[in-house]
Design a protein around this nucleic acid. Structure first.
Lengths: 363, 363
DNA sequence: CCGGACGCGCAAACCGGTTTAGCGAACCGG
DNA sequence: CCGGTTCGCTAAACCGGTTTGCGCGTCCGG
């Protein structure tokens, strides 16, 4: 059963065309170095045989893969379930494709991110959700591949791109405070897996995204002397369902609030749904503020008030910075970008209901 | 400026440890063939030097890449903008990761999908949005790599996985008809790029997804002798914004209708938003039926009536079938799966308004 | 008629691993 | 004491391309 006729190799083409391997290689890569007639003949023979240069062999010889790795500490199945990632991916893909690079998604293989990194055939990594102190970052550095950290500060020799999460969060909280809200619920995204799972609020000092956003919320609240008990910070996966579940859990625990600060638009959308299912009208009974300003934020009813950050651009810039590192431009100094955030007020936030109103019963 | 200290190779480790390259290789891949003490010493030296086997070289020697390619005929930036793809990707990633495989996204590079395929270092492809008659499919076949076609019938030697689009669409249309709707608008997803761009309705016979769904709609309508003029089939990209834009375009063209059949949930969500912006109440003035039953369909207000298809499972099964082909189980016969669809009635569809009512004025 | 430049193509080294075949020493039973 | 295993390791071939350095023949200007 020799059904797979063995893929032709460069040597087969060379023999068939009566030339050397070198000539065949030239015919594909530097046709200029060959007599046009010869080049054409070789290509004809190659076509006839159905020859395609083996990309792996080519990569080995050229020591370039023409691919960038997108590194995520969670399984891809959870990464993809977060709409944020789609938008980020749009940007990353655009920049990569424009430069002729492919996109390789690298996530823990059989539980080990390190193993996955070792297997990844890429020219560099864009890491999202990893901070500098993850051992994997060191592993990559030692392997000599450039890396760009998204949403985390980085050593000078790595690239990085961040937004001002803390300021954005502060703006969101200030907005609700300005509308008279005093009883708030914070819905956070689960801290990256693989790190010690301390109870969440204890990590408010963490320098990851949830930590920075929580600090922002807290700082605005502190400025107004508004308390935020630890029980009013609930977390879940950054998905629609995750947001709804976190909200419901808080509600069932007896907590009451007039405003919700969600760290992700996806979760905020889930909150909208859950609130409606409880008979709460948004924004009359409840105000909701998201974070990210994904496309979906414009589509909900009411449209979502949220903190805008340039998600798509972040993806594009991350890849751009990485590729400049790959090409060795920039010498040693990698770029470090920090982009602004800004509050977008839409329909999901409004004045706080009168104290004692339908949904505000201190929990 | 020799800042990159040259990554250590297997030979360096071998020399340093006073053994052969073979021994080093064994220490990593078949430790059992070495004296435990030797193996440990080799690994220590390797660690010390920061040695990681070069994955490309390993792939070349083993003739396996441990990666599956996800092939899309559109640029990845548009692929990622379709929420459908996130869900599909969840399934695909889950199956791939479970088997120790990575995911490589392959899309046209500098306009050429063929070039991208040639560069892709994968053990096989899952193609989504490609039909058997695309020249690229033949290209892959000749390169000897297995392939699984998603949403398209395939030759026996390729794998395939489909759902019953036509039946699903028929159910959606029948549902609206049963509610008394007679004036309908169909919102289709743009046909895959790269094919001749005939005016859309002319392709209703096409065997791609939009073609099959349109046939389903039409067949239900025909059974009830309800007409659907070509001007009542509008198309756009399968995104929130695409759905809203297509809807608005039809509306501004003077078309009026009491029901919308959208070929994608994403577009249906956009329709919901656009309708609300026009002051139409759903489902009182307008009924909307989507397709796919993505997570978002449950989150909208009102929740979306839609045709369920097992998107996530499709991704998982596609990869599973591919991997069985890669491993050479199954001999020559590849699996061909066809999964059912079913209508999920939620809140976005209701009885047709009385003729002459607010939103129904024949256009 | 000669020397150099140029155009064309080739042989061989190289990329960095894996894997096969086999060698020598230690061990073991008879 | 001897032939056969077993153990531990190695040399060399191999995966399938790219690339460097060079040889050969031809053309051309002087």
């Amino acid at each position: 059963m020799q059904d797979r006729p063995r893929r032709p190799r460069i040597a087969d083409v060379a023999r068939e065309a009566g030339v050397s391997k070198t000539a065949v290689s030239f015919a594909f890569n530097s046709p200029g170095r060959l007599n046009p007639a010869t080049a054409a003949r070789i290509r004809d023979v190659a076509d006839l045989l159905g020859y395609r240069p083996n990309p792996v062999a080519r990569m080995l010889a050229q020591r370039r893969t023409m691919a960038v790795g997108i590194l995520t500490p969670q399984p891809l199945s959870v990464t993809f379930s977060n709409p944020f990632f789609g938008t980020f991916g749009e940007g990353a893909a655009e920049a990569a494709e424009g430069a002729g690079y492919g996109l390789f998604f690298v996530s823990p293989l059989q539980g080990s991110l390190a193993r996955a990194i070792g297997r990844a055939t890429v020219d560099g990594f864009v890491a999202i959700g990893l901070t500098e102190d993850h051992p994997e970052v060191e592993q990559i550095r030692r392997s000599g591949l450039p890396i760009v950290l998204v949403d985390a500060p980085a050593f000078p020799e790595h690239g990085s791109i961040e937004v001002d999460d803390e300021e954005g969060a502060r703006g969101a909280a200030a907005h609700l405070l300005g509308l008279g809200h005093r009883e708030l619920l914070v819905i956070g995204v689960e801290p990256p897996v693989g790190r010690e799972a301390r109870p969440y609020p204890a990590r408010a000092d963490g320098d990851d995204v949830p930590g920075r956003r929580l600090r922002g919320y807290r700082s605005a609240l502190a400025a107004r002397r508004v308390a935020l008990g630890d029980e009013r910070v609930v977390v879940g996966p950054a998905t629609f369902a995750g947001g709804a579940a976190a909200f419901n859990r808080a509600w069932e625990d007896g907590l009451r609030f007039s405003g919700v600060l969600a760290m992700s638009d996806a979760m905020a959308v889930g909150v909208l749904r859950a609130a409606r299912d409880l008979g709460l009208a948004v924004p009359r009974d409840l105000s909701v503020v998201g974070f990210d300003d994904l496309e979906i934020a414009r589509q909900t009813e009411p449209p979502l008030t949220t903190v805008h950050q340039p998600v798509r651009r972040k993806g594009a810039e991350a890849v751009r910075i990485l590729l400049s590192l790959v090409d060795g431009r920039d010498g040693d100094r990698a770029e470090h970008l920090r982009l602004p955030t800004r509050l977008i007020v839409r329909g999901s936030s409004g004045p706080a209901p009168r104290p004692g109103g339908p949904a505000t019963r201190s929990g």
